[in-house]
C-alpha cells in the first residue's frame, strides 16, 4: 500500500509539479515543432513515453555498473548520449522488423527523439536524485506522460488557433511561444502542492 502511494506521488510530481516541458524546460523543440496536429502530437507523445522509460532503465544500469565502479561519473553526459542514441536506433530497427504496425505509428518519431534533451534530462535527473532502478523507470515513464499531456494540450490549442484571427506579426511561432508561456504560468500553480 505504501508503495502504491509512493508511485502515485511520483506520478503527480513528475506529470504536474516537475513537468519536463513547462517547469524544467526540457524537450521544447518537439513541444513547439510537433504540436501542430493532434494526431502527430499523440504519436510523438507515445514515442517519448516509450523512449524515456527504456532510456531511464539503460542509463541507470550504465551508471551503476560502469561509471560508478570506475569512478568516472563525470563522463555521465557523454556516456548517456551515446547509450540513448544507440538504444533508440536499435529499438527502431527491432520494431520495424518485429512489429510493423507499431513502427508505422511510432517509427517516424523515433529518430526525432534520439537527441531530445528531455530524454537525456530524465537520465541525469534519475542519477542526481539517487533513485533506484525501478523508480528510475517509473520516473521516466511518468515524465513521458507529462510531456505527452502538455504536447496534446498545446496541439489542441494550436488547432483552435488556426481558426482564430491572429494579428499578422503574431501569426505562427510568436503566438505559439506566448501560449507556451501562459501554460507554463498555469503549471506554476502546481508548484505549491505538498505531497507525502
Amino acid at each position: 500500500m505504501e508503495y502504491i502511494a509512493k508511485i502515485l506521488i511520483m506520478a503527480v510530481s513528475s506529470i504536474f509539479i516537475n513537468n519536463f516541458v513547462l517547469s524544467r524546460f526540457l524537450g521544447l523543440c518537439p513541444y513547439l515543432g510537433v504540436s501542430k496536429k493532434l494526431d502527430s502530437a499523440f504519436g510523438m507523445g507515445m514515442a517519448v513515453i516509450f523512449v524515456m522509460a527504456i532510456a531511464s532503465a539503460f542509463t541507470w544500469l550504465i551508471n551503476a555498473y560502469l561509471l560508478i565502479p570506475t569512478g568516472l561519473e563525470y563522463l555521465q553526459t557523454i556516456a548517456f548520449i551515446l547509450t540513448i542514441a544507440a538504444l533508440v536506433q536499435f529499438v527502431e530497427m527491432f520494431i520495424q522488423k518485429s512489429a510493423p504496425a507499431l513502427y508505422k505509428s511510432l517509427g517516424v518519431y523515433l529518430p526525432l527523439i534520439t537527441t531530445n534533451c528531455a530524454v537525456l534530462g530524465v537520465a541525469v535527473i534519475n542519477i542526481n536524485d539517487h533513485l533506484n532502478f525501478l523508480d528510475s523507470i517509473l520516473n521516466g515513464f511518468f515524465g513521458g506522460v507529462g510531456f505527452t499531456l502538455v504536447l496534446l494540450m498545446m496541439a489542441g490549442i494550436r488547432e483552435r488557433l488556426e481558426k482564430a484571427e491572429v494579428p499578422k506579426s503574431m501569426q505562427g511561432m510568436p503566438i505559439a511561444l506566448i501560449i507556451a508561456g501562459c501554460m507554463a504560468l498555469a503549471f506554476l500553480g502546481f508548484a505549491g502542492l505538498k505531497l507525502g
Partner: peptide
C-alpha cells in the same frame, strides 16, 4: 581509462547496431 571506457562503449554499440541492421 575514460578514453577506453567511452571508446569501448561506442565500439560495443557500433557492433550491436551493425549486427542488428543485418539481422533486422
Amino acid at each position: 581509462i575514460p578514453a577506453l571506457l567511452i571508446g569501448g562503449l561506442a565500439a560495443v554499440f557500433g557492433i550491436i547496431l551493425a549486427y542488428a541492421s543485418k539481422k533486422f
